[in-house]
């Protein structure tokens, strides 16, 4: 249980911090797609006896750069490219799963298995957290400017296109840590929901990250405790707690705005 709490907290921190940029830059569809497109990588790794982290990471990076490449060629719009990758990769994952006798083996991939987290998983998640937070800190002012005004960022040579690629790579890493906790079907929630709730209130991007992290960590801890005591799915409990936080946050915002 202790390992599960640490894993949930770390994944929550990663996803909340990067999710604020994803939501503010209107890339939520992309974030959502990433969590589904990791499936074939995870299934491949599972069948080959490799740590699913690496399979998921390879599939997430393939999606991030594949979509980027397709969009750069300009024949296809970004949302169409994401839609094609999302459905294609997810179908590939299902096809690979159908080659095995029992779907039950894949429950952990689809719905998360935070209680089965190993010390090695925790180590990888901690490394991803360090990389994510360190990068966001180092490139804070450039990421902020490239999000507000990408043209001015390009004029001064702050390379907004490369920063976007960096953001996609960090998103891929964060989604992979979330998949372990809440599964491929619900990882989007950790990325999007706390960030969306935080952005209703925050007056700065750092403030938004802190609020989102608070919601995310609260959801992970609260969801895990509830699932443990009432024998419920841990991933679903975490996601529903985050959704409830968003609902409350939105309601409060609407009431206070009147």
């Amino acid at each position: 249980m202790q390992r599960a709490l640490v894993a949930g907290t770390l994944a929550g921190v990663n996803c909340a911090a990067i999710g604020v940029y994803i939501v503010q830059r209107r890339m939520s569809f992309f974030g959502g797609a990433l969590s589904h497109t990791v499936l074939p990588g995870m299934v491949f790794a599972f069948l080959r006896g490799i740590d699913i982290f690496w399979g998921a990471l390879a599939a997430a990076l393939a999606t991030a750069f594949g979509v980027g490449w397709l969009v750069k060629r300009r024949e296809v719009s970004e949302d169409a490219a994401i839609g094609v990758f999302l459905s294609g990769m997810f179908a590939l994952g299902i096809l690979m799963m159908s080659q095995v006798n029992s779907f039950r083996d894949f429950n952990a991939l689809l719905f998360g298995s935070v209680l089965g987290v190993t010390p090695a998983d925790l180590g990888l998640t901690a490394i991803v957290t360090l990389i994510t937070l360190g990068t966001l800190f180092a490139y804070h002012k450039e990421l902020e400017l490239a999000s507000i005004d990408p043209e001015y960022a390009q004029v001064i040579g702050a390379r907004p296109n490369q920063l976007r690629t960096l953001l996609l790579a960090l998103t891929a890493l964060s989604v992979v840590t979330a998949v372990r906790v809440v599964g491929a079907l619900m990882a989007t929630a950790l990325l999007i929901t706390p960030a969306a709730a935080a952005l209703l209130w925050a007056r700065s991007i750092v403030g938004a990250m802190l609020i989102a992290t608070g919601i995310s960590v609260f959801s992970a801890v609260c969801g895990l405790i509830v699932s443990y005591h009432y024998d419920l799915s841990s991933g679903a409990s975490i996601v529903l707690t985050a959704t409830a936080c968003f609902g409350l946050s939105w309601l409060l915002r609407v009431v206070l705005k009147r």
Partner: peptide, 19 residues
């Protein structure tokens, strides 16, 4: 061309001119 909904205050936005 600007995302005016971005959470940043006026003083810090103007300071981006010094980047």
């Amino acid at each position: 061309e600007i995302d005016w909904s971005f959470p940043i205050n006026v003083r810090r936005f103007v300071a981006t001119g010094a980047y």
